[in-house]
Amino acid sequence: MKQNETNIPSEKLAAFVDNELMGAERAEIEKRLDQDSELREGFNAQKQVKNLVHDCVVLERAPVHLRSRIRRSLEDAQKTPGFFNLLADIFRFHAAKSLLAAAVLLLLVTFPWLQNMGSDTDLFNGGKYQIVEGKVICV
C-alpha cells in the first residue's frame, strides 16, 4: 500500500476519514495534514469518494410483493417446524406435564391387571386356572 512522506498507511487514513481514530493517533494525523501535501491529497481523495458513495449510491426499494412472499414463507416455517424445534417443543414444561398426566392415567387403568401378574391364577371366563406339572388345569 502506497504511503505518504510521513509514512501514514492509507488504512489509518481511512479510519481518520471515518472518525474512527481517537486521542493521540487522531491528533498526530491532524498535525501532519498541514505539513504533508501527499497525505492531504490522500485524505481528500478518500473523503471525496466516501461522500460520493454516500450521496449518489442509490439503493433500490424492495418490490411490493416481497413482503407478502416473506410473510408466507414465515407462516410455512411456523407450520412445519424443523426436527430440533419439534424436539424443543416436546420437552417444554407444559408438554412434560401432559405426558405425566397420561402416564398416571395409564397406571390407574392397568393397576388391577398388574396386581394379578404375579400370581399363578388368572381370571378367565369366570373360572380359575392352575398350573400343575406344566399343564393348565381348570379348578
Binding site: L59, E60, R61, A62, P63, L66, R67, I70, S73, L74
Partner: peptide, 28 residues
C-alpha cells in the same frame, strides 16, 4: 429494514431474482 436489505442484496448479487431469494433466506 426490508428496503435497505433488498437494496444491499441487489448490490451484492446484481440480480433482482437472486436479491429477493437472498432477502427471503435472510428473514427466514
Amino acid at each position: 429494514h426490508m428496503d435497505i436489505l433488498y437494496g444491499t442484496a441487489l448490490k451484492m448479487t446484481k440480480d433482482p431474482v437472486e436479491a429477493e431469494d437472498l432477502v427471503q433466506d435472510t428473514y427466514l
